[in-house]
Protein backbone atom coordinates (compact mmCIF):
# COMPACT_ATOMS: atom_id res chain seq x y z
CA UNK A 1 0.00 0.00 0.00
CA UNK A 2 1.11 3.53 -0.73
CA UNK A 3 0.56 6.36 1.76
CA UNK A 4 0.32 9.95 0.63
CA UNK A 5 1.05 12.72 3.16
CA UNK A 6 0.21 16.36 2.49
CA UNK A 7 2.59 18.82 4.12
CA UNK A 8 2.48 22.58 4.37
CA UNK A 9 5.20 25.17 4.71
CA UNK A 10 4.25 27.72 7.37
CA UNK A 11 5.87 30.42 9.49
CA UNK A 12 7.79 28.63 12.21
CA UNK A 13 5.72 27.91 15.27
CA UNK A 14 8.18 29.77 17.55
CA UNK A 15 8.35 32.96 15.49
CA UNK A 16 6.53 36.04 16.72
CA UNK A 17 4.02 36.95 14.03
CA UNK A 18 4.03 40.50 12.70
CA UNK A 19 1.15 41.93 10.72
CA UNK A 20 2.08 43.86 7.57
CA UNK A 21 1.62 47.63 7.93
CA UNK A 22 -1.00 47.65 5.15
CA UNK A 23 -3.00 44.94 6.96
CA UNK A 24 -3.05 42.74 3.87
CA UNK A 25 -1.58 39.78 5.74
CA UNK A 26 1.32 38.77 7.96
CA UNK A 27 4.97 39.49 7.29
CA UNK A 28 6.65 36.48 5.67
CA UNK A 29 9.78 37.97 4.14
CA UNK A 30 12.94 37.14 6.06
CA UNK A 31 10.94 35.05 8.50
CA UNK A 32 11.87 31.49 9.48
CA UNK A 33 9.60 28.99 7.71
CA UNK A 34 9.18 25.37 8.77
CA UNK A 35 6.95 22.37 8.28
CA UNK A 36 3.53 22.73 9.93
CA UNK A 37 3.83 20.74 13.20
CA UNK A 38 0.64 18.73 12.55
CA UNK A 39 1.93 17.77 9.11
CA UNK A 40 5.11 16.56 10.77
CA UNK A 41 2.97 14.30 12.94
CA UNK A 42 1.10 13.01 9.88
CA UNK A 43 4.38 12.22 8.16
CA UNK A 44 5.77 10.52 11.25
CA UNK A 45 2.67 8.33 11.44
CA UNK A 46 3.05 7.34 7.77
CA UNK A 47 6.70 6.45 8.36
CA UNK A 48 5.82 4.33 11.39
CA UNK A 49 3.17 2.48 9.41
CA UNK A 50 5.73 1.82 6.70
CA UNK A 51 8.37 0.72 9.20
CA UNK A 52 5.85 -1.69 10.72
CA UNK A 53 5.61 -3.29 7.28
CA UNK A 54 2.07 -2.14 6.56
CA UNK A 55 2.92 0.20 3.70
CA UNK A 56 5.35 0.02 0.85
CA UNK A 57 5.91 3.68 0.05
CA UNK A 58 5.42 7.11 1.60
CA UNK A 59 4.91 10.01 -0.80
CA UNK A 60 5.07 13.56 0.57
CA UNK A 61 3.20 16.25 -1.37
CA UNK A 62 3.10 19.99 -0.96
CA UNK A 63 1.33 22.79 -2.80
CA UNK A 64 2.72 26.31 -2.80
CA UNK A 65 5.62 28.54 -3.83
CA UNK A 66 9.06 27.36 -4.97
CA UNK A 67 10.47 27.28 -1.41
CA UNK A 68 8.12 24.43 -0.52
CA UNK A 69 10.90 22.26 -1.89
CA UNK A 70 12.88 22.94 1.33
CA UNK A 71 9.98 21.64 3.41
CA UNK A 72 9.69 18.59 1.18
CA UNK A 73 13.44 17.99 1.64
CA UNK A 74 12.85 17.93 5.37
CA UNK A 75 10.13 15.36 4.77
CA UNK A 76 12.48 13.27 2.66
CA UNK A 77 15.19 13.59 5.34
CA UNK A 78 12.71 12.30 7.89
CA UNK A 79 12.19 9.26 5.69
CA UNK A 80 9.60 9.84 2.94
CA UNK A 81 10.50 7.93 -0.22
CA UNK A 82 9.71 10.59 -2.77
CA UNK A 83 7.94 13.90 -3.05
CA UNK A 84 5.66 15.87 -5.34
CA UNK A 85 5.64 19.63 -5.42
CA UNK A 86 2.72 21.39 -7.07
CA UNK A 87 4.07 24.85 -7.62
CA UNK A 88 1.75 27.82 -7.30
CA UNK A 89 3.00 31.20 -6.18
CA UNK A 90 -0.28 32.86 -5.24
CA UNK A 91 -2.71 32.58 -2.36
CA UNK A 92 -4.36 29.20 -1.93
CA UNK A 93 -7.47 28.29 0.02
CA UNK A 94 -8.44 24.86 1.38
CA UNK A 95 -10.85 24.01 -1.43
CA UNK A 96 -8.19 24.62 -4.10
CA UNK A 97 -5.73 22.49 -2.15
CA UNK A 98 -8.31 19.75 -1.80
CA UNK A 99 -8.93 19.78 -5.56
CA UNK A 100 -5.21 19.53 -6.27
CA UNK A 101 -4.85 16.72 -3.75
CA UNK A 102 -7.75 14.89 -5.36
CA UNK A 103 -6.00 15.07 -8.72
CA UNK A 104 -2.80 13.74 -7.10
CA UNK A 105 -4.69 10.92 -5.40
CA UNK A 106 -6.27 10.00 -8.73
CA UNK A 107 -2.81 9.79 -10.26
CA UNK A 108 -0.93 8.12 -7.39
CA UNK A 109 -3.70 5.86 -6.06
CA UNK A 110 -2.63 5.77 -2.40
CA UNK A 111 -4.44 3.49 0.03
CA UNK A 112 -4.32 6.14 2.74
CA UNK A 113 -4.12 9.92 2.72
CA UNK A 114 -2.70 11.51 5.86
CA UNK A 115 -2.89 15.23 6.66
CA UNK A 116 -2.32 17.42 9.69
CA UNK A 117 -5.62 18.39 11.28
CA UNK A 118 -4.92 22.04 10.52
CA UNK A 119 -2.16 24.45 9.62
CA UNK A 120 -0.95 26.78 12.34
CA UNK A 121 -0.97 29.81 10.03
CA UNK A 122 -4.59 30.07 8.87
CA UNK A 123 -6.05 27.55 11.36
CA UNK A 124 -8.63 26.55 8.74
CA UNK A 125 -9.05 22.87 9.62
CA UNK A 126 -10.88 22.23 6.33
CA UNK A 127 -8.59 20.59 3.82
CA UNK A 128 -8.81 17.03 5.18
CA UNK A 129 -12.59 17.15 5.36
CA UNK A 130 -12.93 18.68 1.88
CA UNK A 131 -10.66 16.16 0.17
CA UNK A 132 -12.53 13.30 1.85
CA UNK A 133 -15.72 14.78 0.45
CA UNK A 134 -14.30 15.19 -3.04
CA UNK A 135 -12.90 11.65 -3.03
CA UNK A 136 -16.01 10.24 -1.33
CA UNK A 137 -13.64 8.46 1.07
CA UNK A 138 -14.36 7.92 4.77
CA UNK A 139 -12.57 10.33 7.07
CA UNK A 140 -11.09 10.11 10.55
CA UNK A 141 -10.19 13.57 11.80
CA UNK A 142 -8.21 14.58 14.93
CA UNK A 143 -6.66 11.14 15.17
CA UNK A 144 -4.80 10.37 18.36
CA UNK A 145 -4.29 6.70 17.50
CA UNK A 146 -4.27 4.89 14.17
CA UNK A 147 -4.30 1.11 13.73
CA UNK A 148 -4.33 -0.48 10.29
CA UNK A 149 -5.78 -3.87 9.51
CA UNK A 150 -4.64 -4.71 6.03
CA UNK A 151 -6.46 -7.99 5.66
CA UNK A 152 -9.87 -6.46 6.19
CA UNK A 153 -8.83 -3.16 4.62
CA UNK A 154 -9.87 -1.15 7.67
CA UNK A 155 -8.29 1.56 9.76
CA UNK A 156 -9.27 2.05 13.39
CA UNK A 157 -8.92 5.65 14.48
CA UNK A 158 -9.19 7.11 17.99
CA UNK A 159 -10.39 10.70 17.98
CA UNK A 160 -10.11 13.12 20.83
CA UNK A 161 -13.56 14.57 21.36
CA UNK A 162 -14.91 16.74 24.15
CA UNK A 163 -16.14 13.94 26.36
CA UNK A 164 -13.21 11.57 25.85
CA UNK A 165 -12.23 9.27 23.01
CA UNK A 166 -14.31 8.25 20.03
CA UNK A 167 -13.21 5.19 18.07
CA UNK A 168 -14.02 4.93 14.38
CA UNK A 169 -13.60 2.11 11.94
CA UNK A 170 -12.89 3.30 8.40
CA UNK A 171 -12.83 1.29 5.21
CA UNK A 172 -9.66 1.89 3.27
CA UNK A 173 -8.85 3.91 1.27
CA UNK A 174 -9.49 6.71 3.75
CA UNK A 175 -8.47 10.20 4.81
CA UNK A 176 -7.00 10.63 8.31
CA UNK A 177 -6.05 13.98 9.85
CA UNK A 178 -3.67 13.91 12.78
CA UNK A 179 -3.87 15.55 16.19
CA UNK A 180 -1.09 16.59 18.53
CA UNK A 181 -0.85 13.53 20.71
CA UNK A 182 -0.68 10.94 17.96
CA UNK A 183 3.10 10.68 18.04
CA UNK A 184 6.35 12.56 18.53
CA UNK A 185 8.01 13.23 15.17
CA UNK A 186 11.60 12.14 14.66
CA UNK A 187 14.58 14.35 13.95
CA UNK A 188 16.32 14.47 10.59
CA UNK A 189 19.60 12.65 11.11
CA UNK A 190 22.69 13.40 9.05
CA UNK A 191 22.73 10.02 7.29
CA UNK A 192 19.09 10.52 6.32
CA UNK A 193 19.71 14.08 5.17
CA UNK A 194 22.45 12.64 2.99
CA UNK A 195 20.13 9.98 1.57
CA UNK A 196 17.40 12.56 0.96
CA UNK A 197 19.66 14.40 -1.44
CA UNK A 198 19.27 11.66 -4.01
CA UNK A 199 15.51 11.30 -3.63
CA UNK A 200 13.25 12.68 -6.35
CA UNK A 201 10.97 15.68 -6.01
CA UNK A 202 8.55 15.73 -8.94
CA UNK A 203 7.39 19.17 -10.02
CA UNK A 204 3.87 19.84 -11.28
CA UNK A 205 1.61 22.84 -11.72
CA UNK A 206 -2.14 23.09 -11.13
CA UNK A 207 -2.52 23.26 -14.94
CA UNK A 208 -0.77 19.89 -15.25
CA UNK A 209 -3.44 18.50 -12.97
CA UNK A 210 -6.26 20.37 -14.74
CA UNK A 211 -7.20 22.23 -11.58
CA UNK A 212 -8.34 25.81 -11.88
CA UNK A 213 -7.32 27.92 -8.89
CA UNK A 214 -10.00 30.36 -7.86
CA UNK A 215 -11.71 31.26 -4.68
CA UNK A 216 -14.95 32.70 -3.49
CA UNK A 217 -13.10 34.02 -0.46
CA UNK A 218 -11.37 37.35 -0.10
CA UNK A 219 -9.26 38.44 2.86
CA UNK A 220 -10.46 41.93 3.71
CA UNK A 221 -8.10 42.79 6.51
CA UNK A 222 -5.63 41.20 8.94
CA UNK A 223 -5.15 42.94 12.27
CA UNK A 224 -3.40 42.21 15.53
CA UNK A 225 -5.49 41.54 18.61
CA UNK A 226 -5.90 44.72 20.68
CA UNK A 227 -3.06 45.33 23.13
CA UNK A 228 -3.82 44.88 26.77
CA UNK A 229 -3.95 48.20 28.56
CA UNK A 230 -1.53 48.80 31.41
CA UNK A 231 -2.99 48.46 34.89
CA UNK A 232 -3.14 51.26 37.41
CA UNK A 233 -2.22 51.26 41.08
CA UNK A 234 -4.90 52.82 43.23
CA UNK A 235 -4.21 54.51 46.51
CA UNK A 236 -7.27 53.53 48.51
CA UNK A 237 -10.13 51.07 48.79
CA UNK A 238 -12.58 53.92 48.25
CA UNK A 239 -10.97 54.70 44.96
CA UNK A 240 -11.16 51.02 43.98
CA UNK A 241 -14.86 50.87 44.80
CA UNK A 242 -15.43 54.04 42.86
CA UNK A 243 -13.64 52.61 39.82
CA UNK A 244 -15.52 49.33 40.05
CA UNK A 245 -18.82 51.17 40.23
CA UNK A 246 -18.33 53.96 37.77
CA UNK A 247 -15.66 52.75 35.37
CA UNK A 248 -15.91 48.97 35.24
CA UNK A 249 -19.59 49.07 36.24
CA UNK A 250 -19.43 45.69 37.92
CA UNK A 251 -20.80 46.78 41.28
Amino acid sequence: MRIMVAIKRVIDYAVKIRVKPDKSGVETSNVKMSMNPFCEIALEEALRIKEAGRASEVVAVSVGPAQCVDTLRTGLAMGADRAIHVEFPGTLYPLSIAKILKALVDAEKPGLLLLGKQAIDDDCNQTGQMIAGLLKWPQGTFASKVVLDEENKVATVDREVDGGLETLCLDLPAVITTDLRLNQPRYATLPNIMKAKSKVIKKLTPQDLNVEIRSDLEVVQVTEPPKRKAGVILSSVDELIDKLKNEARVL
Partner: peptide, 13 residues
Amino acid sequence: LLTDGVLAQDINQ
Protein backbone atom coordinates in the same frame (compact mmCIF):
# COMPACT_ATOMS: atom_id res chain seq x y z
CA LEU B 1 34.90 13.13 12.91
CA LEU B 2 31.24 12.66 13.60
CA THR B 3 29.59 9.37 14.34
CA ASP B 4 26.04 10.67 14.10
CA GLY B 5 24.03 13.84 14.27
CA VAL B 6 20.74 15.62 13.75
CA LEU B 7 20.02 18.98 12.21
CA ALA B 8 17.19 21.05 13.68
CA GLN B 9 14.47 21.53 11.05
CA ASP B 10 12.61 24.20 12.98
CA ILE B 11 13.02 26.48 15.98
CA ASN B 12 11.15 24.06 18.19
CA GLN B 13 13.72 21.34 17.53
